[in-house]
Nucleic acid binder design. Structure first.
Length: 199
DNA sequence: CCGAGGATTATCT
DNA sequence: GATAATCCTCGGA
């Protein structure tokens, strides 16, 4: 197995990290369970204190503090009081940035995922930020976990590089009444024609 | 303190 | 397509 992507990979602009995370492998290991892994096929970047769609906007708060911290750690928060969202912190320490992992294509541990997503169609298993955290059993407890080592049971390693021809961008999803230009800026990246990309 | 409002999903019509 | 679920964060008083 390849080594996890190093911290230097994440210590760059969240926009670059979001693009290059496409095709990387998200890996999850739990005690007594087989390895569960999937190819990242959809990401969003949240970058800078002036990005009004980002939790990192304006200033540090108890919740968004990880976004200002060390790159290569997770930032997991609860959406709608129910759904954990998995982000990886990007940009150097002190600069608020993160990449939201919105969808993966399951590669390993399909039986474990099938059990957690019982009753859903295959393409609904991991095609959305909350769906993927359910499939991998990721919760708020995994906030600020280091994904550059395998020690925490959750990490990211190189997978299949995705060519520019296969990459699409769009505005970010679910931003509600975020003002322009943040509402429409194309900071979502996804793999074209992949059925695991969210609607 | 208090209240408004989510980086969503599942379910129902 | 519309809406409930569900709870925590953050801004304002």
């Amino acid at each position: 197995m390849p080594d996890p992507l190093p911290r230097s990979f994440y210590a760059r602009s969240a926009l670059v990290v979001a693009r290059e995370l496409l095709g990387a492998q998200l890996v999850r290991i739990e005690a007594g369970q087989p390895r569960v892994a999937g190819l990242i096929v959809e990401t969003e970047a949240y970058s800078g204190a002036d990005d009004l769609a980002s939790h990192g906007r304006k200033r540090i708060t108890p919740r968004n503090q990880p976004m200002y911290g060390q790159p290569g750690l997770t930032y997991v928060y609860l959406s709608r009081g129910i759904h954990p969202m998995l982000n990886v912190v990007a940009e150097p320490e002190g600069s608020p940035g993160a990449v939201l992992i919105r969808a993966i294509r399951p590669l390993e541990g399909l039986d474990v995922i099938a059990q957690r997503r019982a009753g859903r169609l295959l393409h609904e298993w991991t095609s959305g930020p909350a769906r993927l955290t359910m499939a991998l059993a990721i919760t708020k407890a995994h906030n600020q976990l280091d994904v550059t080592t395998t020690a925490g049971g959750l990490w990211i390693e190189p997978g299949e590089p995705i060519s520019d021809e296969a990459v699409r961008t769009s505005p970010r999803i679910g931003l509600g009444k975020t003002p322009e230009p943040w509402l429409s800026i194309p900071w979502r990246w996804y793999v074209a024609d992949d059925k695991f990309v969210s609607r």
